[in-house]
Amino acid sequence: MVDEEHADLSIRRQCELLQISRSGWYYKPKGESELNLELMRVIDKEYLEHPFRGVPSMTSFLINDCGYPINKKRIERLYKVMGLRSLLPGPHTSKPSPENKIYPYLLRNLEITHSNQVWETDISYVPIAKGFMYLMAVIDVHSRYIVGWSLSNTMSAEWCRNTIQECINNHGAPEIVNTDQGSQFTSDLFTGYLLGQGVTISMDGKGRATDNIYIERFWRTVKYEDIYLNEYRDGLKLQIGLIEYMNFYNNERRHSSIDEKRPCDLYQSKPHSTTSEAKVSASLESVKGG
């Protein structure tokens, strides 16, 4: 799809037209050993099935059920790299910086009745051949519509801010955004932007990943229905595959949790600019025609 020898368009311009991050195109595998990459894939699948597993429980599973000759310190480090934490109360790896403000959780007993009332967002590890990337997605709770997403090599606050900014540019500002207490989401860069847009911030209670349940469920769906099935070779293939899957998820896939409707049937917004799907379609034609 991206032509390295295109006569008129640079790789940078082609990536911009296709809305493909150059971090995906120029992706270099992370410096993890083959064993660590294998362990991370096993951990990710087991965590989706049993998110109560913290480091001690996962270490026991890997040693006793899978036969890996590893220790707790290795798994503790991999949990940090992957951004995982157990659903059970107790110490977790997704921690705010001590100087960052924590906001109260506002969704308990809240009746969610319309689009753009509440968005949830989170970051998830995504395996690719000989490495991994991070996926951030933002879901509208009322409709289950994915209002935006992006990939990155690192979990930076700037990346998170830029992703939520694009969502708001495309769909308008929601009333509430709910996140976990990770340092990216508690940073002044991220929270300051939301407050400047008039958004109310809500954060999961400490050690309560279930407070962000809708985005957590989405990770399970996208991984089982797309990522694990396709075993993407590199960041660019992953980006292109996810563009197709997100379009399917939003506009074709019917969800039992919303009475077999499609997210697009329930989601209503007033876009500030052309939607991502339309941009991608027009950009593809532009690159092909160039």
Rank of each mutant, 00 (worst) to 15 (best):
residue 7 A to K: 15
residue 7 A to L: 15
residue 8 D to Y: 13
residue 9 L to W: 09
residue 9 L to Y: 13
residue 12 R to I: 07
residue 14 Q to N: 10
residue 15 C to D: 05
residue 15 C to A: 13
residue 18 L to V: 05
residue 19 Q to W: 07
residue 19 Q to N: 13
residue 20 I to A: 12
residue 20 I to C: 13
residue 21 S to C: 05
residue 23 S to H: 11
residue 25 W to H: 15
residue 25 W to A: 00
residue 27 Y to S: 06
residue 27 Y to T: 02
residue 28 K to M: 11
residue 28 K to A: 12
residue 29 P to Y: 10
residue 29 P to S: 12
residue 30 K to E: 10
residue 34 E to M: 06
residue 35 L to H: 02
residue 36 N to M: 03
residue 37 L to T: 13
residue 38 E to D: 10
residue 38 E to I: 06
residue 39 L to Y: 10
residue 40 M to V: 11
residue 42 V to P: 04
residue 43 I to L: 04
residue 44 D to P: 03
residue 44 D to R: 08
residue 47 Y to F: 14
residue 49 E to G: 00
residue 49 E to W: 03
residue 50 H to F: 12
residue 50 H to N: 08
residue 52 F to D: 04
residue 53 R to V: 03
residue 54 G to R: 07
residue 58 M to A: 08
residue 58 M to R: 08
residue 63 I to W: 04
residue 64 N to F: 14
residue 65 D to R: 08
residue 66 C to T: 00
residue 67 G to D: 09
residue 68 Y to T: 10
residue 69 P to Y: 02
residue 69 P to I: 07
residue 73 K to I: 05
residue 75 I to V: 15
residue 76 E to I: 00
residue 78 L to V: 09
residue 79 Y to G: 04
residue 81 V to M: 04
residue 81 V to R: 08
residue 82 M to R: 13
residue 82 M to E: 10
residue 84 L to M: 08
residue 85 R to V: 04
residue 87 L to H: 10
residue 88 L to G: 00
residue 88 L to Q: 05
residue 89 P to G: 03
residue 89 P to D: 01
residue 90 G to V: 01
residue 94 S to A: 11
residue 97 S to D: 15
residue 98 P to Q: 05
residue 101 K to E: 14
residue 101 K to C: 05
residue 102 I to C: 10
residue 105 Y to A: 08
residue 105 Y to D: 04
residue 109 N to C: 01
residue 110 L to R: 14
residue 110 L to N: 02
residue 111 E to H: 11
residue 112 I to R: 05
residue 115 S to A: 11
residue 116 N to H: 05
